[in-house]
Amino acid sequence: MTDTQLDTSTKDTASPKESGVVLETRGLVKRFGTNTVLDGIDLTVHRGEAVVVVGPSGCGKSTLLRCIVGLEQLDGGQVLLDGEVVSGEGASVRSKETRQRVGMVFQSYDLFPNKTVLGNVMLAPLKVQKRDKTKVMAQAEQLLRRIGLWDKRDVYPSTLSGGQKQRIAIVRALMMNPDVMLFDEITAALDPEMVHEVLQVVVELADGGLTMVVVTHEMRFAEALADRIILLDAGHVVEESSNPSQFFSNPQTQRAKDFLRSFEFERSRENE
């Protein structure tokens, strides 16, 4: 397991850095046909907090993120940003504006193949936010240097590894200066040896105080990253904990115990 190599020494795992609610979902419902994927999800994310959502495949984790960012129409409930309803009943702002305040990185590689690395990261700040090109370039240089890919600025995505693509996708989302970042199983499509380089970037961003909601199957990463952890199952929040270590070592619900049991074999192999 590569995520065992994560440097968690700087991570403050004591408590969430509470300084106001940035993102909130109230009674969020999403159905696909007759299948209710999310059934009344209440989620609160505070500024600077890293919330990790885990759960079995098909439990609605990705759908939750897609609803938050506005890629899915809600069938009930609301999404609020800084107390303002941005999606669902009584939404006061357009979804396009919401998307600029919430950054998202997908599971599959989503860089634009017709743009260079710089083209990818600068496109939206220039064309959507209409920001000054010099300032955008300076920010792009700073962020690309931070992830060690400034020398790749003029190449096209097809020449990059999966890990490099995902790191650049993270930078592209950060370039919009979002209030919240959503990460949807961003290492699921990566070779194991590339997982670490991507997760390390996320951990560093969390250490830097970036507010984020992370969906992942990497349990060690989840434990290292989370200020709060949420177990989702069949569209419901089954267990929520502000003490990730306790969640993993002593879960409170039977469902959480069953879910985590599947990872015990993995852990026991690591400890051998």
Partner: peptide, 13 residues
């Protein structure tokens, strides 16, 4: 579709 969604997430019309 991921290309359309990526553009949407970045606020592009």
């Amino acid at each position: 579709s991921i290309q359309y969604e990526s553009a949407q997430v970045l606020g592009m019309g």
